[in-house]
């Protein structure tokens, strides 16, 4: 049964509750759902994590191989991120090559990792201009109940933090932990009427007019942002969202240590 249409009754219910500062699952606007993070869930991956935000569940895995660097960055390892919205995760997801949503998700997650310099790519150089480590980060949605951005980003961060570079398999010396410099955390807020909420569920996403995703690092600095959907935010709203995202970043950073 397709659930991509939210009934008028449900939509109005969400609106009415939010006018009183409440949400369908009993949360307040700034409450996250229960978050769980398990790392090392896939033995065949160099690093992996399963993350749940309430009923939303994703798995991220890192595979590494040796390849040639890009000509303009001869002494840097290569990072690529892709996301699959597999049909298992939601009645509306279809198999086939990634569509716009999956590509946007992957690119927003990628930007958070890349722009924060989380992975020290210079330490992933083996021979400048010839051999570097390539990091393939793959994210699969397992169950979709809203806010894939934050769940996917957290899964990637947890997977990278726990990853081991398989150097001995490639005759490149001993295995070593993936060099990680910081822990960027992504938090998304959605706008419903004039209320801003964190960690939207599927129904909340469906009735929201806009969303803003903000990645911040451990110093509270903003490292990446992405606005989505056709609605608009005021400047005050944007500032407010950035502050909330930084606070939520600290809250979530404690979970993964």
């Amino acid at each position: 049964m397709s659930r991509s249409v939210v009934s008028e009754i449900r939509r109005n219910h969400i609106y009415e509750l939010l006018r009183k500062g409440r949400r369908m699952d009993g949360r307040e606007p700034l409450d996250l759902r229960e978050i769980s993070v398990e790392t090392g869930v896939i033995d065949t991956a160099e690093g992996s994590a399963r993350v749940r935000y309430g009923e939303t569940e994703v798995i991220a895995g890192l595979k590494m191989a040796i390849g040639t660097p890009f000509p303009d960055t001869p002494n840097k390892g290569v990072l690529t991120t892709s996301m699959e919205l597999i049909p298992m995760a939601h009645p509306d997801f279809e198999s086939g090559p990634p569509g716009g949503d999956a590509i946007e998700l992957a690119r927003v997650v990628d930007r958070g990792i890349r722009e924060s310099g989380m992975v020290d790519v210079e330490k992933l150089c083996i021979t400048p201009g010839e051999e570097v480590w390539m990091c393939f980060i793959d994210i699969y949605s397992i169950n979709y109940d809203g806010n894939l951005f934050d769940a996917a980003a957290l899964a990637v961060v947890a997977a990278l933090k726990s990853a081991i570079v398989p150097a001995s398999n490639h005759d490149k010396g001993e295995d070593f932990p993936l060099p990680v410099t910081c822990v960027p955390i992504t938090a998304t807020m959605a706008k419903i009427e004039n209320t801003l909420i964190v960690d939207p569920t599927f129904d909340e996403e469906m009735v929201s007019s806009a969303r803003l995703t903000v990645t911040s690092d451990g110093n509270g600095d903003v490292r990446a942002m992405q606005k989505g959907k056709s609605g608009a935010f005021t400047v005050e709203e944007v500032n407010y969202i950035v502050d909330v995202a930084r606070e939520k970043g600290d809250e979530i950073r404690k979970i993964i240590g």
């Binding site: 896939i42 065949t44 991956a45 992996s48 798995i59 895995g61 890192l62 595979k63 191989a65 892709s82 699959e84 597999i86 049909p87 198999s95 090559p97 393939f136 793959d138 699969y140």
Partner: peptide, 18 residues
């Protein structure tokens, strides 16, 4: 039925897709 191996499920990364 759609059987799918995730890219990190095996030793050398599998290219996603059927």
């Amino acid at each position: 039925c759609k059987y799918n191996m995730q890219s990190y499920s095996v030793g050398d990364r599998k290219r996603p897709g059927p």
